[in-house]
Write a protein that binds this DNA or RNA. Structure first.
Lengths: 114, 114
DNA sequence: TTCGATGTTCGGTGACGATCGAACATCAAC
DNA sequence: GTTGATGTTCGATCGTCACCGAACATCGAA
């Protein structure tokens, strides 16, 4: 079996992978910060883990098809693939985000406020 | 830290735990078979894994608060804690079940048909 | 071209999870 | 009681994952 190095297309999105990616509080925190549809710089995210660890979580989110990244110079900009997720798994993201907001899951992830 | 040996109450349900428990195809298959609200005997479930493995998955589902078990003699009867999940995480279970049905996730789990 | 900023990748570690077979516990039935 | 059915627990293995620091690659700016 070959290794997948590109993001999954809409049809390739797999429910178990999406749920697994969303089951980590840190990743859920990142997703919540992207929930307004805006584009965020990777470096804006603050979390109590090493940079390499944060990068690993980003890779996980990309691999599951939850976020998308775009490079501009040395910067990396992220967006939530909400339309793709909604079309493939209607109501799922909304339900997860509502629950996460209510429970404040991933509140230890923030944005640079300087 | 003390070990939790009883099922979580409604208030104790944690979103990451629930999502993690639902991220396994086999467990998702079990949940789908319980989705009609009926009670099913543990032994009814057929899956291509050892009995001990199935038991482990059941424990995981119970620990996450997704199912409930009742003992009668040597038998073990399971039900989905749908009301609890709905009250704590509205729309989540419906969204997951719809997506799982559509994708036929966990179809390798079945019921004894003899 | 040298430097600093930005991310990614690498090697390693420790924890967790899926899996199995075997052993065990419990209960019903004979 | 002995036996059989039903589940659970145990010990072990194997893979995956979160995490870190260090090394690396890339790009913009001085």
């Amino acid at each position: 079996m070959r290794h997948k190095d590109s993001d999954p297309t809409v049809e390739e999105l797999q429910l178990p992978d999406v749920l697994a990616a969303l089951s980590d509080p840190l990743r859920l925190g990142v997703v919540r910060l992207l929930a307004d549809g805006g584009e965020r710089n990777f470096g804006e995210f603050c979390a109590p883990v090493a940079k390499s660890t944060l990068s690993h979580h980003l890779r996980t989110l990309r691999a599951a098809g939850i976020v998308q990244s775009r490079n501009e110079g040395t910067r990396c900009y992220l967006t939530l693939r909400r339309a793709d997720l909604d079309s493939r798994f209607p109501q799922l993201l909304d339900a997860v985000l509502s629950a996460a907001d209510h429970d404040e899951v991933g509140n230890h992830v923030g944005l640079q406020t300087d």
